[in-house]
Design a binder for these strands. Sequence first.
DNA 1: CGTGGTTTTGATCATAATCAACGTCTGTGG
DNA 2: CCACAGACGTTGATTATGATCAAAACCACG
Lengths: 238, 238
Amino acid sequence: MIRQNIQIACSSCSLRELCMPVGLDADELQRIDRIVGSRQKVKRKESIFQNGERFTSLYAIRTGMFKTRLVSEDGRDQVTGFQMAGEILGLDGIVNSRHTCDAVALEDSEVCVMPFDRVEALSREITSLQRHVHRIMSREIVREHGVMLLLGSMRAEERLAAFLLNLVQRLHARGFSRSELVLRMTREEIGSYLGLKLETVSRTLSKFADDGIVEVQHRNVRIVDAEALRSLVNPSAA
Amino acid sequence: MIRQNIQIACSSCSLRELCMPVGLDADELQRIDRIVGSRQKVKRKESIFQNGERFTSLYAIRTGMFKTRLVSEDGRDQVTGFQMAGEILGLDGIVNSRHTCDAVALEDSEVCVMPFDRVEALSREITSLQRHVHRIMSREIVREHGVMLLLGSMRAEERLAAFLLNLVQRLHARGFSRSELVLRMTREEIGSYLGLKLETVSRTLSKFADDGIVEVQHRNVRIVDAEALRSLVNPSAA
DNA sequence: CGTGGTTTTGATCATAATCAACGTCTGTGG
DNA sequence: CCACAGACGTTGATTATGATCAAAACCACG
């Protein structure tokens, strides 16, 4: 029992600098351990929730990577994000107590299940947790603004450059390489996220490789010239 | 003084079914009157906040209409939303205590200023307000998912059809006509929101008019065949 | 009653989508 | 361990969609 509690404790989690406990002191940290109801393993291609399901919990990613996906009535499929360790899934479900998208694991993963009523109860007691929950939701809103800018006003090369830079930056914040990354998603999923067809993603990656900006071997990407990528995203600031 | 307090009270506001007080009982309603610090008039083209400014408050729209706009470093301009009475502006500012976009009035407007520390303090006391704040943020996340679907996978006609239906539906919820609307924004602003150029917006509107789906006179639009618009947005469900 | 911002429309062009074929990797079962 | 099937990825040729460039008309507002 104690062992179990220790296992699922935020206070001993290696992600505490990235996840829910950000900004909490030692005392608060202990109290929010109660926030996590359980851990859940998720195999590749499985989902932790799907559109239409009742919303009960938020999910903090411990290991692995997910995509969130919207499927419209007429079968259109839109990837709305790729999430990695320390990021929170399920915020879409709060408004109507139903999830409005699917969260699918791109590799075998593990999540912490945080029943939302506990999150709300604890946020009423711990001001810094309340503040943190607000910041997490606000961050998601700001992230989506950025995606709107990308989808609304960038060309294919700019979109892919922005995507690669964003991924590698987030991976680097988690201790991975600043220049090498493994794409856990298919070209089609990247395309869906970026509003491009898979052929365009493939061609654009090939072009980057031809230009010596990246090296691509299937899903392994090495960013050779990050500056070139940055100047693609932001032409004037070149 | 009393007069002033009555003026800025949520409990006597005609928008209480749409705005912050949704779902609160009479007692709670009185208590959240304190949430509104002041009212503020905003002239057309003026902004209530801009990218980079310190975040202190959320703003509830009492009258008028706004756009939120992202300006990237290289001058790219993306409209991220159009907001009307009862909707909340400023959520983007929470995460870093700085606003990340501009909120510009499209017509002379009025907003209620809600200092965010008061919002947080009251949410700790009034559970249903806490819940409501969470729902407002979640709703914004879900709305943005929908915009991503639109920008990522719809063609020009579909985008414009979805835009018109969304606008008229929100106006109707505020007591306006189900079929007639006035566009408070320019073709360029519509285009920016929809990821299209202003010429494409204009042409597409003209095509809808030719097809007898809408009547357009400058900024006055009459939706003649809402069903046709719906089947454009959602081809299979025709 | 101009003047400038806005809108419409036309002609042409650029970008990415589509259609198609082939190559390559992965994982599974013989 | 190899062979095979199926998913995934690349590349080429062509087309469709919306962008761009341009000019004129319209309107609102001072």
